[in-house]
Design a protein around this nucleic acid. Structure first.
Lengths: 122, 122
DNA sequence: ATAAAATGATCTATGTATAGCTCATATAGA
DNA sequence: TCTATATGAGCTATACATAGATCATTTTAT
């Protein structure tokens, strides 16, 4: 079976994205914590990558703090090497989760802007 | 200018990935916290998406806790609506980051497995 | 010193996440 | 009630992240 995968097209234009210092630092910190925890547990990059079901290259990028990695892969690796997210263990996390869901129910379902400026012209 | 973009190939096979309960919960919690914070600050999805430089659709997936979003986009949105990562503000975060880097310098540069079982056959 | 193993870096093919629409529905405010 | 608007959901094209390989280098343990 043959599958049509490619045709002719125009030159692609790449998109660059900007990040705040806080996001950069947070991702770098998480990556560093993962790398530290992995070494303390004496696990090789290949072992952790296998357990997480990802490639060794992706694990390297995660440990470097690459902002373009998918969050599921990052969190999965963090879990495997024992880095706590939100500084919460499994039970605390799920409790916090349901609390957040309850809180959301109480908030308005959509945010509405003031339609016009307040009438102060009288 | 014409750019060669496509050729003929074989049928693609998709890859499914599994995630732990902990990763699922952590991502869902983060998404919920973001949604809650956004509403409390009375920001529309469009406003936050614009400020983060992402599409409204991606923001919806982030708030839903989609594990395939890139971590940079998620952290950027969290920062914008005021959700603290690591329960730390900017200065605490950068301090923690340099501490982690210092700690890494002290650890062995590569993890080495015991090459063979301990000699107990004598 | 030597060798085996771990890590770092780079390349290609391809599966897929994303932007940017459209349309339908829900909802807050007048 | 009425209406503007926010949200939800689905679509397509494409830019890009990932897997998987290879090779070079570093590093640990013997």
């Amino acid at each position: 079976m043959v599958y049509i995968r490619y045709i002719l097209g125009t030159m692609p234009k790449s998109i660059t994205r900007t990040y705040s210092r806080y996001s950069l630092d947070a991702t770098a910190l998480l990556g560093g914590l993962i790398r530290t925890a992995r070494k303390e547990r004496k696990l090789t990059t290949q072992e952790v990558a296998d357990r997480a079901g990802i490639s060794r290259g992706l694990l390297q990028r995660i440990e470097k703090g690459d902002l373009k990695c998918e969050i599921g892969a990052v969190f999965e690796v963090a879990t495997i090497v024992g880095v706590k997210l939100f500084e919460a263990d499994e039970t605390t996390l799920s409790r916090h989760l349901s609390q957040t869901r309850d809180k959301l129910k109480l908030l308005p379902k959509s945010v509405r802007k003031k339609s016009r400026a307040v009438r102060d012209d009288f």
